Computed example of a mutant assay.
Amino acid sequence: MNRTKLIATAASALAVTAVLTGCSSSPAPAPAAEAKPVPSSVPVTKPFKGLRPTSVSIPKIGAQSSLVSVAVNLEGKISVPSVKTPMQAAWYRLSPVPGEVGPAIVLGHVDGDKKPGIFYKLKDLAPGDEVDIDRSDGKKLKFTVDHLTQVPKDQFPQDAVYGNSTKPELRLITCGGVFDHAEHSYEDNIVVYANLAS
């Protein structure tokens, strides 16, 4: 099994207990009975010295951000940038590097600190829209949106989002739907699925 497939497999396994924890602390989907939180000491802004994506740009919605690398926290959820910096996007470093085979995961807040977040307008994307990713090796990649889904967080489609694929793909994830004031969290996730164009 090559390195890319190993990374994708690891991402899929961790996804059983990992989900976006931003957007005012989104709850994780119900884990499998045997799943346990995956300990990690990787802070949200820890530099990543290997090949990585460095920025994301989505022209249609005017979204542009550098990318910090994130992993899984002690609660078994994907770490995200602070809601006090809602315009900062992140790459889940246990998923493939964008442009490599498999689903690369990029996360962003819909809002935070009483301001719109980097993915505030993510729900407005449609098939054919462009998502640009720059990498640390100088490559500039263009992905095109295939489709978008909005799903309740307790029905998060882990296999579809994190499962292995045979080609380079991209997933953009944020929160959406109704805001639950009691839980201080949105009830849904918005997931954009995109394929490598160039």
Rank of each mutant, 00 (worst) to 15 (best):
M1D: 11
L6A: 14
T9E: 14
L14E: 08
A15H: 07
V16D: 15
A18M: 03
C23A: 12
P27Q: 04
P27F: 01
P27T: 03
A28G: 11
A28E: 11
P29Y: 02
P31Y: 06
K36V: 15
K36P: 04
S40N: 15
V42S: 06
P47C: 05
K49A: 15
R52M: 13
P53N: 11
T54I: 10
S55F: 00
S55K: 08
S55Y: 02
I58C: 03
P59K: 01
I61V: 09
S65K: 06
A71L: 10
S79A: 13
V80M: 14
V80F: 06
M87L: 13
A89H: 00
A89V: 05
L94W: 14
S95F: 10
S95W: 10
G99K: 09
G102S: 00
G102I: 04
H109I: 00
G112R: 02
D113S: 12
K114M: 14
Y120I: 00
D124A: 13
L125E: 08
G138K: 11
G138W: 08
K140I: 01
T144G: 09
V145Y: 07
H147V: 00
P152T: 00
Q158F: 01
Q158N: 12
V161M: 08
Y162D: 12
K167I: 13
K167G: 09
P168G: 04
L172F: 04
L172M: 11
T174L: 08
Y186I: 07
E187L: 14
D188S: 15
I190R: 09
N195Q: 14
